[in-house]
Design a protein around this nucleic acid. Structure first.
Lengths: 339, 339
DNA sequence: TTGTAGGCGTTATCAA
DNA sequence: TTGATAACGCCTACAA
């Protein structure tokens, strides 16, 4: 491995001078700079980040912890963030975590090892924050998850109002004449988001005085096509009379639609299906999905702005709600008034 | 930050003893182990990987470089690899790269910073390997990309025979009575894989003596829904008489189908569409996609086996072909013999 | 079984 | 403008 020492030896300068060149310091003679840069290029020298980060130096880095490697909404948000950060003096350090991983633990590790100026959490489990977040002492923003109830002055959040958004979905289905509605969602005990959305649904049913049998008409699934596919079949076996389904993600909605079709039911003719998220695929699917679109651009931009503000001004935590948008699509149809 | 020194001081033992405990060495007294472990837990101490990796120590790590965060085939392969590695003495270090990033450069960095025992490349651009790969000196496996033509004794590959697979797709379309076939694929100059598939197509046309106007009936797109959507529209504007389309990925096929439907054309009634990859979504889409299924389990298992073998036995490079499977789906229909 | 000491590659401080 | 040197946190010979 080529080290800074090798470059120093070969150039005739000392390691300090080489280091200065590498870090674009200006207290180096043009001569030295040119000579050293030539050798660096020739030797394909790249500094060792491990060594670099040993000294806990302010790193102008913003860490991003993405939970769920292949979450399409997060992919969109991240892309947005990346392009925005390019115009700042910061660098991004992105880590992908498993769905079940403890992001707060990872945040601690990242802090220790990269010493970032701030952290963005794309997704996350609020429970993990309850214990262990005290040790993270840089400004953080929880993206797409509400953090208002967490008592940390360095943790802001930017999120869609899950309760209202899910309520809006149910409002819409009811407005379309549906009264027997099934719901497919995540585990209400494990997923805070799912629980919020569920509460929004139940509220809407109550407001509209539409009956909803919580025991029979809710079915748990993971956020994957085939888990939702199986959930849809279970749901239908138990509640054969539903005319609409609200799925708590577009991926779930697609699994559900496939299940219905495989059972010989048409979507939306026989049963309407509503999704959530507004991923790109929603408008490429057949039928185009009716869904609640989370505004990923806004989520991204507000999160980053909040974080940069917290870093620069050391402000206290702020919790923002980003508006959502109902997209009508083709998967929900108006149900003729009952005779 | 808590360091090994703090633990040493607090426990009354020396740093080396603490280090030994942390690394599960057996030359530590049970007493010391217990005492130190208690303090480590109480202080939430986690070793600093930067420092740990400064010494270029064999790390029992296998690095995985995934190119293209949202590639669904890679997601499946990676998941498979992860579950297999759990049963070995190795740890995985996964890095995600942009579509356009230079994976060989990244490999060099990973080697320098993590000193892995081997590297798996999920996707990659063969051109990047032409220059710079010499500096990577651990066993590597190119997954899903043919590397036979690269002259490196430490670079194996496990891939689907893209040429044969694409040829098989065209064979199938022709067997179904299609003779005017359009193709949507990646940039033939940039994507080796696309080129191989394209050659397979052209070969098949020649063998079956079916005419194919290379200039008119091929349309370039990126591997995304909306890029393929636009490509499909361009293709149709130029070749209005096609009865079938072969898309070089399922994602492209979905974009193409959406475009056709938006133009009022039915799939498969008016135009048949064939995909490639066999991602999970293919069987959840409407219509279920006819596609060439790459066997991600086999790609995953053979790659890992090959890599472990190379590591253990220091074998020379091996290039394997993994069989593919044609999935009929619903998006391709038999065309009635022409009058 | 335990401790001491030196080194990994880089940056920062201070002196020249 | 440059160079010598001391950290950074950890691991590992080697010595006890």
């Amino acid at each position: 491995m080529v080290t800074i020492r090798d470059i120093a030896r070969e150039s005739g300068y000392s390691v300090s001078t080489v280091s200065r060149v590498l870090n674009n310091r200006r207290d180096v003679s043009p001569d030295a700079r040119q000579k050293i840069e030539a050798i660096v290029a020739a030797r394909h020298f790249v500094p060792n980040n491990n060594a670099r980060h040993m000294r806990c130096v302010a790193s102008k880095t913003i860490a991003v912890l993405v939970k769920g490697t292949f979450n399409l909404l997060f992919a969109s948000i991240l892309e947005e963030i990346q392009s925005m950060v390019e115009n700042t003096r910061y660098t991004l350090a992105v880590s992908y975590l498993d769905e079940e991983a403890n992001e707060v633990e990872q945040a601690q590790i990242v802090c220790r090892e990269r010493n970032p100026m701030g952290i963005l959490f794309l997704g996350g489990n609020l429970e993990y924050f309850q214990e262990g977040f005290e040790e993270v002492d840089v400004p953080c923003v929880l993206v797409s998850n509400q953090g208002r109830e967490l008592p940390f002055s360095n943790l802001s959040s930017v999120a869609t109002d899950d309760k209202a958004a899910a309520g809006c979905a149910i409002d819409y289905l009811i407005a379309q004449g549906h009264e027997k509605i099934g719901i497919i969602g995540g585990d209400l005990k494990l997923s805070y988001t799912s629980m919020q959305r569920y509460i929004g649904c139940v509220d809407s049913f109550r407001v509209h005085q539409v009956e909803f049998d919580e025991k029979r008409c809710f079915e748990k699934a993971r956020f994957s096509y085939d888990s939702a596919y199986r959930a849809m079949k279970r749901l239908l076996a138990r509640c054969g009379d539903i005319t609409a389904v609200f799925a708590m993600s577009d991926v779930m909605a697609i699994g559900a639609i496939r299940a219905l079709r495989d059972l010989g039911l048409g979507v939306p003719e026989d049963i309407s299906v509503m999704g959530f998220d507004g991923i790109t695929l929603a408008e490429f699917y057949n039928p185009k999905l009716a869904t609640i679109q989370q505004q990923y651009q806004t989520l991204a931009s507000r999160s980053l702005e909040l974080l940069l503000k917290s870093i620069d001004l050391n402000t206290s935590s702020i919790h923002e709600i980003v508006p959502f948008k109902l997209v009508e699509g083709e998967s929900v149809i108006k149900r003729p008034a009952r005779l």
